[in-house]
Design a protein around this nucleic acid. Structure first.
Length: 525
RNA sequence: GGGACUGUGGGGUAGCUUGGUCCAUCCUUCGGGGUUCGGGACUCCGAGACGCCAGUUCAAAUCUGGCCAGUCCCA
Protein backbone atom coordinates (compact mmCIF):
# COMPACT_ATOMS: atom_id res chain seq x y z
CA UNK A 1 0.00 0.00 0.00
CA UNK A 2 1.54 3.25 -1.08
CA UNK A 3 -0.01 5.20 1.77
CA UNK A 4 1.03 2.87 4.53
CA UNK A 5 4.15 4.63 5.57
CA UNK A 6 2.68 8.10 5.45
CA UNK A 7 -0.34 6.93 7.38
CA UNK A 8 2.05 5.52 9.91
CA UNK A 9 3.58 8.96 10.21
CA UNK A 10 0.17 10.48 10.73
CA UNK A 11 -0.58 7.95 13.43
CA UNK A 12 2.75 8.65 14.95
CA UNK A 13 1.94 12.32 15.09
CA UNK A 14 -1.43 11.65 16.68
CA UNK A 15 0.14 9.41 19.28
CA UNK A 16 2.76 11.99 20.05
CA UNK A 17 0.17 14.67 20.62
CA UNK A 18 -1.98 12.38 22.73
CA UNK A 19 1.05 11.39 24.78
CA UNK A 20 1.85 15.04 25.32
CA UNK A 21 -1.68 15.78 26.43
CA UNK A 22 -1.63 12.79 28.80
CA UNK A 23 1.64 13.86 30.25
CA UNK A 24 0.45 17.39 30.77
CA UNK A 25 -2.72 16.11 32.33
CA UNK A 26 -0.76 13.93 34.72
CA UNK A 27 1.44 16.79 35.76
CA UNK A 28 -1.54 19.02 36.30
CA UNK A 29 -3.23 16.32 38.35
CA UNK A 30 -0.19 16.00 40.56
CA UNK A 31 0.36 19.70 40.93
CA UNK A 32 -3.28 20.59 41.44
CA UNK A 33 -2.84 23.81 39.50
CA UNK A 34 -5.57 25.97 38.04
CA UNK A 35 -7.91 24.33 35.54
CA UNK A 36 -6.05 25.80 32.55
CA UNK A 37 -3.26 23.33 33.11
CA UNK A 38 -5.44 20.37 32.27
CA UNK A 39 -4.96 20.68 28.54
CA UNK A 40 -1.95 22.91 28.41
CA UNK A 41 -0.74 22.04 24.95
CA UNK A 42 2.35 24.03 24.33
CA UNK A 43 2.71 24.73 20.63
CA UNK A 44 5.82 22.89 19.60
CA UNK A 45 7.03 23.89 16.18
CA UNK A 46 8.59 21.06 14.18
CA UNK A 47 11.83 22.97 14.31
CA UNK A 48 12.76 25.81 16.59
CA UNK A 49 16.02 26.26 14.81
CA UNK A 50 15.23 28.84 12.12
CA UNK A 51 13.65 31.25 14.55
CA UNK A 52 16.45 33.73 15.13
CA UNK A 53 15.90 34.94 11.58
CA UNK A 54 12.47 34.67 10.06
CA UNK A 55 12.41 35.30 6.32
CA UNK A 56 11.67 38.93 5.53
CA UNK A 57 7.92 39.58 5.47
CA UNK A 58 8.15 42.19 2.73
CA UNK A 59 10.47 40.53 0.26
CA UNK A 60 9.78 36.84 0.95
CA UNK A 61 6.19 36.93 2.09
CA UNK A 62 5.21 33.32 1.53
CA UNK A 63 8.35 31.94 3.18
CA UNK A 64 7.73 34.24 6.09
CA UNK A 65 4.07 33.23 6.31
CA UNK A 66 4.84 29.51 6.31
CA UNK A 67 7.49 29.97 8.99
CA UNK A 68 5.10 32.00 11.12
CA UNK A 69 2.34 29.43 10.80
CA UNK A 70 4.83 26.71 11.71
CA UNK A 71 6.20 28.59 14.67
CA UNK A 72 2.76 29.43 16.00
CA UNK A 73 1.94 25.74 16.35
CA UNK A 74 -1.61 26.17 15.08
CA UNK A 75 -1.65 23.50 12.42
CA UNK A 76 0.09 20.27 11.53
CA UNK A 77 0.82 19.97 7.84
CA UNK A 78 1.90 16.35 7.92
CA UNK A 79 -1.49 14.82 7.23
CA UNK A 80 -0.96 12.70 4.11
CA UNK A 81 -3.51 14.48 1.91
CA UNK A 82 -2.48 17.66 0.19
CA UNK A 83 -4.35 20.70 1.34
CA UNK A 84 -5.84 19.00 4.35
CA UNK A 85 -4.20 20.00 7.58
CA UNK A 86 -4.69 19.08 11.18
CA UNK A 87 -5.82 21.69 13.68
CA UNK A 88 -3.74 21.39 16.82
CA UNK A 89 -5.32 22.06 20.21
CA UNK A 90 -3.74 25.52 20.19
CA UNK A 91 -4.91 26.27 16.65
CA UNK A 92 -8.35 24.93 17.33
CA UNK A 93 -8.73 27.33 20.23
CA UNK A 94 -8.06 30.21 17.84
CA UNK A 95 -10.56 28.86 15.36
CA UNK A 96 -13.23 28.37 18.00
CA UNK A 97 -12.71 31.91 19.28
CA UNK A 98 -12.89 33.27 15.77
CA UNK A 99 -16.09 31.34 15.08
CA UNK A 100 -17.59 32.71 18.28
CA UNK A 101 -17.16 36.24 16.94
CA UNK A 102 -18.74 35.30 13.61
CA UNK A 103 -21.68 33.67 15.34
CA UNK A 104 -22.17 36.61 17.67
CA UNK A 105 -22.20 39.18 14.89
CA UNK A 106 -24.26 37.26 12.38
CA UNK A 107 -26.87 36.30 14.95
CA UNK A 108 -27.10 39.94 15.96
CA UNK A 109 -28.47 40.55 12.47
CA UNK A 110 -31.21 37.97 12.87
CA UNK A 111 -29.62 34.88 11.34
CA UNK A 112 -30.07 31.37 12.69
CA UNK A 113 -27.80 28.37 12.64
CA UNK A 114 -28.73 25.29 10.59
CA UNK A 115 -26.81 22.38 9.19
CA UNK A 116 -27.27 20.70 5.84
CA UNK A 117 -25.69 17.42 4.68
CA UNK A 118 -22.22 17.25 3.19
CA UNK A 119 -23.21 15.23 0.11
CA UNK A 120 -25.21 16.65 -2.76
CA UNK A 121 -26.86 14.52 -5.47
CA UNK A 122 -25.41 15.28 -8.90
CA UNK A 123 -28.92 15.91 -10.16
CA UNK A 124 -29.41 18.83 -7.76
CA UNK A 125 -25.88 20.08 -8.22
CA UNK A 126 -26.35 20.29 -11.97
CA UNK A 127 -29.55 22.28 -11.85
CA UNK A 128 -27.85 25.62 -11.99
CA UNK A 129 -25.83 25.68 -15.20
CA UNK A 130 -23.50 28.58 -14.53
CA UNK A 131 -22.81 27.31 -11.05
CA UNK A 132 -21.68 23.86 -12.10
CA UNK A 133 -19.52 25.34 -14.80
CA UNK A 134 -17.75 27.41 -12.14
CA UNK A 135 -17.02 24.44 -9.92
CA UNK A 136 -16.65 21.67 -12.46
CA UNK A 137 -12.92 21.22 -12.14
CA UNK A 138 -12.93 21.54 -8.38
CA UNK A 139 -15.40 19.04 -6.99
CA UNK A 140 -14.77 15.72 -5.33
CA UNK A 141 -17.13 13.03 -6.51
CA UNK A 142 -18.51 10.15 -4.52
CA UNK A 143 -19.40 7.51 -7.04
CA UNK A 144 -19.48 4.33 -5.01
CA UNK A 145 -21.32 3.15 -1.94
CA UNK A 146 -19.55 0.17 -0.51
CA UNK A 147 -19.10 -2.21 -3.40
CA UNK A 148 -21.76 -0.88 -5.74
CA UNK A 149 -21.73 2.07 -8.08
CA UNK A 150 -24.22 4.77 -7.10
CA UNK A 151 -26.95 5.33 -9.66
CA UNK A 152 -26.86 9.03 -8.85
CA UNK A 153 -23.32 10.16 -8.04
CA UNK A 154 -22.84 12.53 -5.11
CA UNK A 155 -20.60 15.56 -4.84
CA UNK A 156 -18.84 16.66 -1.69
CA UNK A 157 -20.15 20.21 -1.37
CA UNK A 158 -17.76 22.88 -2.63
CA UNK A 159 -20.38 25.32 -1.26
CA UNK A 160 -23.92 24.58 -0.27
CA UNK A 161 -26.32 26.47 -2.53
CA UNK A 162 -27.42 23.35 -4.32
CA UNK A 163 -27.80 21.36 -1.09
CA UNK A 164 -29.88 23.98 0.62
CA UNK A 165 -32.12 25.40 -2.08
CA UNK A 166 -34.27 22.35 -2.77
CA UNK A 167 -35.17 22.46 0.91
CA UNK A 168 -35.74 26.22 0.84
CA UNK A 169 -38.25 25.60 -1.92
CA UNK A 170 -40.36 23.48 0.43
CA UNK A 171 -39.82 25.69 3.48
CA UNK A 172 -41.02 28.81 1.77
CA UNK A 173 -44.71 29.08 0.87
CA UNK A 174 -45.79 32.55 1.82
CA UNK A 175 -44.46 36.08 2.14
CA UNK A 176 -44.90 35.45 5.87
CA UNK A 177 -41.97 32.98 5.66
CA UNK A 178 -39.68 35.80 4.57
CA UNK A 179 -37.08 36.89 5.14
CA UNK A 180 -35.35 33.58 5.77
CA UNK A 181 -31.85 34.12 7.16
CA UNK A 182 -29.83 31.05 8.07
CA UNK A 183 -26.16 30.22 8.31
CA UNK A 184 -24.03 27.17 8.87
CA UNK A 185 -20.42 26.53 9.81
CA UNK A 186 -19.38 23.34 8.06
CA UNK A 187 -16.54 21.85 6.08
CA UNK A 188 -16.60 22.16 2.31
CA UNK A 189 -14.30 20.57 -0.21
CA UNK A 190 -12.55 21.90 -3.27
CA UNK A 191 -10.07 19.94 -5.29
CA UNK A 192 -7.35 22.57 -5.58
CA UNK A 193 -4.75 21.70 -8.16
CA UNK A 194 -2.44 24.58 -7.38
CA UNK A 195 -0.09 24.67 -4.43
CA UNK A 196 -2.02 24.66 -1.17
CA UNK A 197 -1.15 26.91 1.77
CA UNK A 198 -2.27 26.47 5.35
CA UNK A 199 -5.47 28.50 5.86
CA UNK A 200 -5.08 30.42 2.60
CA UNK A 201 -5.69 27.71 0.05
CA UNK A 202 -6.89 24.37 1.33
CA UNK A 203 -8.93 21.49 0.01
CA UNK A 204 -11.06 20.94 3.06
CA UNK A 205 -12.40 24.34 3.93
CA UNK A 206 -13.76 25.33 7.30
CA UNK A 207 -16.59 27.40 5.92
CA UNK A 208 -19.06 29.89 7.30
CA UNK A 209 -21.93 30.47 4.90
CA UNK A 210 -25.09 32.45 5.31
CA UNK A 211 -27.96 31.89 2.88
CA UNK A 212 -30.94 34.16 2.83
CA UNK A 213 -34.20 34.54 0.93
CA UNK A 214 -35.78 37.95 0.56
CA UNK A 215 -39.05 39.10 -0.89
CA UNK A 216 -37.50 41.27 -3.58
CA UNK A 217 -34.32 42.72 -4.96
CA UNK A 218 -34.32 45.75 -2.67
CA UNK A 219 -34.60 43.60 0.43
CA UNK A 220 -31.78 41.43 -0.84
CA UNK A 221 -29.68 44.53 -1.41
CA UNK A 222 -30.47 45.54 2.15
CA UNK A 223 -29.32 42.11 3.36
CA UNK A 224 -26.03 42.57 1.53
CA UNK A 225 -25.57 45.86 3.38
CA UNK A 226 -26.41 44.22 6.66
CA UNK A 227 -23.82 41.49 6.04
CA UNK A 228 -21.27 44.13 5.25
CA UNK A 229 -22.07 45.84 8.55
CA UNK A 230 -21.72 42.57 10.42
CA UNK A 231 -18.38 41.92 8.77
CA UNK A 232 -17.17 45.38 9.76
CA UNK A 233 -17.80 44.46 13.37
CA UNK A 234 -16.02 41.13 12.98
CA UNK A 235 -13.05 42.79 11.33
CA UNK A 236 -12.99 45.38 14.11
CA UNK A 237 -12.75 42.62 16.66
CA UNK A 238 -9.75 41.22 14.80
CA UNK A 239 -8.21 44.67 14.16
CA UNK A 240 -8.20 43.70 10.52
CA UNK A 241 -8.56 46.54 7.99
CA UNK A 242 -10.26 45.60 4.72
CA UNK A 243 -12.01 47.08 1.74
CA UNK A 244 -15.30 45.87 0.26
CA UNK A 245 -14.95 45.70 -3.51
CA UNK A 246 -17.52 44.90 -6.18
CA UNK A 247 -15.90 42.27 -8.37
CA UNK A 248 -15.96 42.74 -12.14
CA UNK A 249 -18.41 40.60 -14.12
CA UNK A 250 -15.81 38.10 -15.21
CA UNK A 251 -14.67 37.43 -11.69
CA UNK A 252 -17.92 37.18 -9.76
CA UNK A 253 -19.23 34.05 -8.07
CA UNK A 254 -20.70 31.63 -10.62
CA UNK A 255 -24.43 32.28 -10.74
CA UNK A 256 -24.34 35.56 -8.86
CA UNK A 257 -25.93 38.83 -9.97
CA UNK A 258 -23.02 40.56 -8.30
CA UNK A 259 -20.29 39.77 -5.81
CA UNK A 260 -18.83 42.00 -3.14
CA UNK A 261 -15.47 40.72 -2.05
CA UNK A 262 -13.84 41.64 1.23
CA UNK A 263 -10.21 42.28 0.39
CA UNK A 264 -7.30 42.93 2.72
CA UNK A 265 -4.00 44.30 1.41
CA UNK A 266 -1.05 42.40 2.78
CA UNK A 267 1.86 44.27 1.29
CA UNK A 268 3.69 44.46 -2.05
CA UNK A 269 0.41 44.97 -3.98
CA UNK A 270 -0.81 41.60 -2.79
CA UNK A 271 -4.34 41.17 -1.56
CA UNK A 272 -6.17 38.46 0.27
CA UNK A 273 -9.88 37.88 -0.22
CA UNK A 274 -11.25 37.39 3.28
CA UNK A 275 -14.74 36.52 2.20
CA UNK A 276 -17.54 37.50 -0.08
CA UNK A 277 -21.15 38.57 -0.14
CA UNK A 278 -23.30 37.69 -3.13
CA UNK A 279 -26.59 38.96 -4.46
CA UNK A 280 -28.20 36.20 -6.51
CA UNK A 281 -31.38 37.96 -7.54
CA UNK A 282 -33.62 35.13 -8.82
CA UNK A 283 -30.80 33.17 -10.43
CA UNK A 284 -31.04 30.22 -8.08
CA UNK A 285 -34.68 30.68 -7.09
CA UNK A 286 -35.84 29.93 -10.64
CA UNK A 287 -34.08 26.60 -11.21
CA UNK A 288 -34.86 25.49 -7.67
CA UNK A 289 -38.41 26.79 -7.69
CA UNK A 290 -38.15 28.88 -4.53
CA UNK A 291 -41.42 30.82 -4.74
CA UNK A 292 -43.83 32.40 -2.34
CA UNK A 293 -47.37 33.68 -2.49
CA UNK A 294 -47.31 37.45 -2.09
CA UNK A 295 -49.87 39.43 -0.11
CA UNK A 296 -51.71 40.16 -3.33
CA UNK A 297 -52.01 36.46 -4.15
CA UNK A 298 -49.40 36.38 -6.90
CA UNK A 299 -46.54 33.85 -7.04
CA UNK A 300 -43.09 35.47 -6.75
CA UNK A 301 -39.56 34.17 -6.84
CA UNK A 302 -37.40 35.03 -3.84
CA UNK A 303 -34.23 37.05 -4.15
CA UNK A 304 -31.32 35.37 -2.46
CA UNK A 305 -28.04 36.38 -0.91
CA UNK A 306 -25.12 34.54 0.54
CA UNK A 307 -22.22 35.55 2.75
CA UNK A 308 -19.18 33.32 2.95
CA UNK A 309 -16.08 33.29 5.14
CA UNK A 310 -13.47 30.67 5.89
CA UNK A 311 -10.37 29.92 7.93
CA UNK A 312 -8.64 32.12 5.42
CA UNK A 313 -9.71 34.84 7.83
CA UNK A 314 -7.38 33.27 10.37
CA UNK A 315 -4.66 33.19 7.72
CA UNK A 316 -5.25 36.87 7.08
CA UNK A 317 -4.99 37.67 10.77
CA UNK A 318 -1.68 35.84 10.93
CA UNK A 319 -0.50 37.49 7.72
CA UNK A 320 -1.50 41.04 8.61
CA UNK A 321 -0.55 41.12 12.29
CA UNK A 322 2.47 38.83 12.29
CA UNK A 323 5.91 40.38 12.40
CA UNK A 324 9.60 39.54 12.55
CA UNK A 325 9.07 37.62 15.80
CA UNK A 326 6.19 35.48 14.58
CA UNK A 327 2.45 35.43 15.03
CA UNK A 328 0.41 38.06 16.85
CA UNK A 329 -3.15 37.25 17.88
CA UNK A 330 -5.68 39.95 18.70
CA UNK A 331 -7.13 39.28 22.14
CA UNK A 332 -10.52 38.40 20.64
CA UNK A 333 -9.19 35.16 19.21
CA UNK A 334 -5.91 34.56 21.05
CA UNK A 335 -5.87 30.94 22.24
CA UNK A 336 -4.23 32.30 25.38
CA UNK A 337 -4.61 35.99 26.08
CA UNK A 338 -2.14 35.90 28.92
CA UNK A 339 0.74 33.58 29.70
CA UNK A 340 2.21 33.58 33.20
CA UNK A 341 5.85 32.57 33.60
CA UNK A 342 7.37 31.93 37.01
CA UNK A 343 11.11 32.49 37.25
CA UNK A 344 12.57 30.15 39.89
CA UNK A 345 16.10 31.37 40.54
CA UNK A 346 18.57 29.92 43.06
CA UNK A 347 17.38 31.87 46.12
CA UNK A 348 13.75 32.44 45.18
CA UNK A 349 12.13 29.46 46.88
CA UNK A 350 8.65 28.57 45.69
CA UNK A 351 7.37 32.16 45.97
CA UNK A 352 7.43 32.82 42.21
CA UNK A 353 5.58 29.60 41.37
CA UNK A 354 2.95 30.12 44.07
CA UNK A 355 2.42 33.73 43.04
CA UNK A 356 2.20 32.75 39.36
CA UNK A 357 -0.40 30.12 40.23
CA UNK A 358 -2.40 32.68 42.15
CA UNK A 359 -2.27 35.10 39.22
CA UNK A 360 -3.26 32.50 36.65
CA UNK A 361 -6.08 31.23 38.83
CA UNK A 362 -7.50 34.66 39.46
CA UNK A 363 -7.36 35.71 35.81
CA UNK A 364 -9.01 32.46 34.73
CA UNK A 365 -11.80 32.99 37.25
CA UNK A 366 -12.12 36.48 35.85
CA UNK A 367 -12.91 34.91 32.47
CA UNK A 368 -9.59 35.38 30.72
CA UNK A 369 -7.86 32.69 28.70
CA UNK A 370 -4.65 32.28 30.62
CA UNK A 371 -1.87 29.75 30.59
CA UNK A 372 0.62 29.08 33.36
CA UNK A 373 3.91 27.92 31.87
CA UNK A 374 5.65 26.25 34.79
CA UNK A 375 7.69 23.89 32.61
CA UNK A 376 11.38 23.13 32.97
CA UNK A 377 12.61 25.39 30.21
CA UNK A 378 14.53 28.51 31.06
CA UNK A 379 12.55 31.73 31.05
CA UNK A 380 14.17 33.08 27.90
CA UNK A 381 13.17 30.00 25.92
CA UNK A 382 9.58 30.44 27.08
CA UNK A 383 9.55 34.09 26.07
CA UNK A 384 10.60 33.25 22.54
CA UNK A 385 8.13 30.43 22.27
CA UNK A 386 5.12 32.42 23.40
CA UNK A 387 6.12 35.35 21.25
CA UNK A 388 6.16 33.05 18.23
CA UNK A 389 2.80 31.75 19.33
CA UNK A 390 1.39 35.27 19.35
CA UNK A 391 0.21 35.57 22.95
CA UNK A 392 -0.79 39.21 23.58
CA UNK A 393 0.44 39.57 27.14
CA UNK A 394 3.13 37.89 29.19
CA UNK A 395 3.39 38.17 32.96
CA UNK A 396 6.70 37.29 34.62
CA UNK A 397 6.99 36.49 38.29
CA UNK A 398 10.44 36.17 39.84
CA UNK A 399 11.72 36.66 43.36
CA UNK A 400 11.43 40.46 43.19
CA UNK A 401 7.83 40.33 41.98
CA UNK A 402 6.79 37.67 44.44
CA UNK A 403 8.17 39.72 47.32
CA UNK A 404 6.58 42.97 46.17
CA UNK A 405 3.24 41.38 45.12
CA UNK A 406 3.63 42.49 41.51
CA UNK A 407 4.27 40.96 38.09
CA UNK A 408 6.30 42.26 35.20
CA UNK A 409 4.16 42.61 32.09
CA UNK A 410 5.36 42.47 28.52
CA UNK A 411 3.03 43.10 25.62
CA UNK A 412 3.63 41.10 22.45
CA UNK A 413 4.04 44.47 20.76
CA UNK A 414 6.85 45.47 23.09
CA UNK A 415 5.35 47.59 25.89
CA UNK A 416 6.83 46.62 29.25
CA UNK A 417 5.41 47.46 32.64
CA UNK A 418 4.40 46.23 36.03
CA UNK A 419 1.06 45.18 37.42
CA UNK A 420 0.22 45.04 41.10
CA UNK A 421 -1.51 41.92 42.28
CA UNK A 422 -4.01 43.86 44.37
CA UNK A 423 -5.47 45.34 41.21
CA UNK A 424 -4.58 42.40 38.98
CA UNK A 425 -7.80 41.88 37.01
CA UNK A 426 -8.23 45.58 36.37
CA UNK A 427 -4.65 46.23 35.31
CA UNK A 428 -4.42 43.18 33.09
CA UNK A 429 -7.64 44.18 31.33
CA UNK A 430 -6.09 47.60 30.78
CA UNK A 431 -2.92 46.12 29.31
CA UNK A 432 -4.93 43.90 26.98
CA UNK A 433 -6.97 46.86 25.81
CA UNK A 434 -3.76 48.80 25.19
CA UNK A 435 -2.43 45.86 23.22
CA UNK A 436 -5.52 45.73 21.02
CA UNK A 437 -5.36 49.49 20.42
CA UNK A 438 -1.70 49.32 19.45
CA UNK A 439 -2.37 46.35 17.18
CA UNK A 440 -5.21 48.18 15.44
CA UNK A 441 -3.03 51.25 14.99
CA UNK A 442 -0.20 49.24 13.50
CA UNK A 443 -2.59 47.50 11.11
CA UNK A 444 -4.27 50.77 10.15
CA UNK A 445 -0.92 52.34 9.35
CA UNK A 446 -0.09 49.40 7.11
CA UNK A 447 -3.47 49.69 5.41
CA UNK A 448 -3.07 53.40 4.74
CA UNK A 449 0.32 52.79 3.12
CA UNK A 450 -0.95 49.91 1.01
CA UNK A 451 -2.65 51.94 -1.74
CA UNK A 452 -1.52 54.44 -4.32
CA UNK A 453 -2.76 56.05 -7.48
CA UNK A 454 -1.63 54.87 -10.92
CA UNK A 455 -2.19 57.32 -13.76
CA UNK A 456 -1.40 54.97 -16.63
CA UNK A 457 -1.05 51.32 -17.55
CA UNK A 458 2.72 51.70 -17.72
CA UNK A 459 2.80 52.89 -14.11
CA UNK A 460 1.27 49.60 -12.98
CA UNK A 461 4.34 47.53 -13.75
CA UNK A 462 6.21 46.46 -10.63
CA UNK A 463 3.65 47.97 -8.27
CA UNK A 464 4.48 47.63 -4.61
CA UNK A 465 1.07 48.86 -3.48
CA UNK A 466 -2.48 48.11 -4.52
CA UNK A 467 -3.22 50.62 -7.27
CA UNK A 468 -6.19 52.89 -7.70
CA UNK A 469 -6.94 53.36 -11.41
CA UNK A 470 -9.58 55.08 -13.50
CA UNK A 471 -11.55 52.47 -15.43
CA UNK A 472 -14.36 52.76 -17.96
CA UNK A 473 -15.90 49.46 -16.88
CA UNK A 474 -15.28 47.48 -20.06
CA UNK A 475 -13.89 43.98 -19.84
CA UNK A 476 -11.29 44.62 -22.53
CA UNK A 477 -9.85 47.56 -20.60
CA UNK A 478 -10.06 45.53 -17.40
CA UNK A 479 -7.87 42.84 -18.91
CA UNK A 480 -5.36 45.44 -20.09
CA UNK A 481 -5.11 46.71 -16.54
CA UNK A 482 -4.66 43.16 -15.29
CA UNK A 483 -1.85 42.58 -17.76
CA UNK A 484 -0.28 45.88 -16.68
CA UNK A 485 -0.06 44.92 -13.03
CA UNK A 486 0.40 41.20 -13.70
CA UNK A 487 -2.50 40.57 -11.37
CA UNK A 488 -6.20 41.23 -11.22
CA UNK A 489 -8.64 44.07 -11.49
CA UNK A 490 -10.15 43.64 -8.05
CA UNK A 491 -13.15 45.77 -8.87
CA UNK A 492 -14.85 48.94 -7.75
CA UNK A 493 -14.79 49.78 -4.03
CA UNK A 494 -18.11 49.92 -2.24
CA UNK A 495 -17.97 53.20 -0.40
CA UNK A 496 -15.02 55.53 0.05
CA UNK A 497 -11.58 54.88 -1.37
CA UNK A 498 -8.75 54.27 1.06
CA UNK A 499 -6.85 57.30 -0.26
CA UNK A 500 -7.82 60.81 -1.44
CA UNK A 501 -7.64 60.97 -5.22
CA UNK A 502 -10.33 63.38 -6.38
CA UNK A 503 -12.59 62.25 -9.20
CA UNK A 504 -11.52 59.97 -12.04
CA UNK A 505 -10.66 61.47 -15.42
CA UNK A 506 -10.05 59.15 -18.37
CA UNK A 507 -9.83 55.35 -18.39
CA UNK A 508 -6.17 54.35 -18.11
CA UNK A 509 -6.65 51.76 -20.86
CA UNK A 510 -8.81 53.35 -23.55
CA UNK A 511 -8.90 57.02 -22.56
CA UNK A 512 -12.68 57.12 -22.57
CA UNK A 513 -14.19 59.71 -20.24
CA UNK A 514 -17.69 58.26 -20.03
CA UNK A 515 -18.79 56.07 -17.13
CA UNK A 516 -15.33 56.18 -15.65
CA UNK A 517 -14.98 55.09 -12.03
CA UNK A 518 -12.14 54.33 -9.62
CA UNK A 519 -11.15 50.71 -9.48
CA UNK A 520 -8.49 48.73 -7.63
CA UNK A 521 -5.82 46.57 -9.18
CA UNK A 522 -3.56 44.22 -7.26
CA UNK A 523 -2.10 40.76 -7.09
CA UNK A 524 -4.39 38.42 -5.20
CA UNK A 525 -2.68 35.62 -3.32
C1' G B 1 -3.55 20.21 -19.96
C1' G B 2 2.25 20.74 -21.31
C1' G B 3 7.20 20.81 -19.28
C1' A B 4 11.17 20.72 -15.46
C1' C B 5 12.58 19.05 -10.85
C1' U B 6 12.36 16.64 -5.95
C1' G B 7 11.39 12.47 -2.35
C1' U B 8 16.86 10.01 3.46
C1' G B 9 14.48 9.65 11.52
C1' G B 10 9.15 14.20 14.01
C1' G B 11 11.62 18.91 11.24
C1' G B 12 16.03 20.37 8.29
C1' U B 13 20.13 17.92 5.95
C1' A B 14 25.16 14.93 4.21
C1' G B 15 26.00 10.80 1.16
C1' C B 16 23.89 9.60 -5.02
C1' U B 17 28.08 11.89 -10.35
C1' U B 18 31.92 6.84 -10.46
C1' G B 19 27.20 0.74 -6.58
C1' G B 20 31.06 -1.85 -1.67
C1' U B 21 34.34 2.80 2.88
C1' C B 22 26.80 3.31 5.25
C1' C B 23 24.38 -2.03 10.80
C1' A B 24 23.85 6.03 6.78
C1' U B 25 26.41 12.26 8.47
C1' C B 26 25.43 16.69 11.12
C1' C B 27 21.85 20.09 13.47
C1' U B 28 17.27 19.96 15.69
C1' U B 29 13.54 17.03 18.02
C1' C B 30 11.94 13.18 21.46
C1' G B 31 12.75 9.97 26.32
C1' G B 32 15.75 9.48 30.95
C1' G B 33 19.63 11.35 34.70
C1' G B 34 22.34 15.49 36.78
C1' U B 35 23.73 20.66 37.12
C1' U B 36 20.89 25.05 35.98
C1' C B 37 16.97 29.05 35.69
C1' G B 38 15.79 37.55 35.14
C1' G B 39 15.97 36.77 26.97
C1' G B 40 16.76 30.54 22.97
C1' A B 41 21.58 26.66 29.14
C1' C B 42 25.02 22.72 29.70
C1' U B 43 26.27 17.73 30.32
C1' C B 44 25.88 12.24 30.29
C1' C B 45 22.92 8.12 28.47
C1' G B 46 19.20 6.56 25.05
C1' A B 47 15.40 6.67 20.65
C1' G B 48 14.27 7.56 15.64
C1' A B 49 15.01 7.53 8.34
C1' C B 50 16.84 5.86 2.59
C1' G B 51 8.40 7.29 -0.71
C1' C B 52 6.26 2.31 -2.78
C1' C B 53 6.82 -2.02 -6.06
C1' A B 54 9.73 -4.61 -9.30
C1' G B 55 14.41 -5.22 -12.04
C1' U B 56 19.96 -5.32 -12.78
C1' U B 57 24.06 -7.09 -9.52
C1' C B 58 28.15 -11.11 -5.56
C1' A B 59 26.51 -6.26 -3.54
C1' A B 60 21.51 -0.79 -4.25
C1' A B 61 20.18 5.25 -0.35
C1' U B 62 23.23 5.25 -4.98
C1' C B 63 21.73 2.37 -11.51
C1' U B 64 16.88 1.10 -14.58
C1' G B 65 11.43 0.87 -15.09
C1' G B 66 6.60 1.58 -13.21
C1' C B 67 3.65 3.74 -9.47
C1' C B 68 2.58 7.26 -5.60
C1' A B 69 3.35 11.95 -3.41
C1' G B 70 5.02 16.87 -3.70
C1' U B 71 7.35 21.55 -5.71
C1' C B 72 8.15 25.08 -9.54
C1' C B 73 7.33 27.14 -14.50
C1' C B 74 4.06 27.61 -18.70
C1' A B 75 -1.28 27.28 -20.58
Amino acid sequence: MHTTRRMAHALWAAETIMARVDRTARRAGAGGGPPERRCAYVPTPPSRRPMPELPDKRTAFMDWYLAVVDGAGVTDKRYPVKGMNVWTPYGFRARRNLDAVLVREIEATGSEAVEFPTLIPATEFEKEKEHIKGFDAQVYWVTRGGLSELDIPLVLRPTSETAIYPIFSVWIRSHRDLPLNVYQIVNTFRYETKTTRPFLRVREIHFFEEHTCQANEAHATERVRSNLGAFRKMADAFALPFLPVRRPEWDKFPGAYYTIALDAPIGEARTLQLGSIHHYRENFARPYGIRYEAADGSQQYVHQTTFGLSERLLGAILAVHGDAKGAVFPTAIAPYQVVVIPIPGPDAGDGPLRTAEEIAGRLARHGLRVHLDAGDERPGAKYYRWEQAGVPLRLEVGRREAESRTATSASRLGAKGRVTIDRLEHEVAERLAEFDRALAERAAAGFAAAFSLAGSIAELAGSTTVRVVAWCGSEACGHQIEAGIDGALLGVPEGPLPIEVGSPGACVACGSTTAVRWALAGRPL
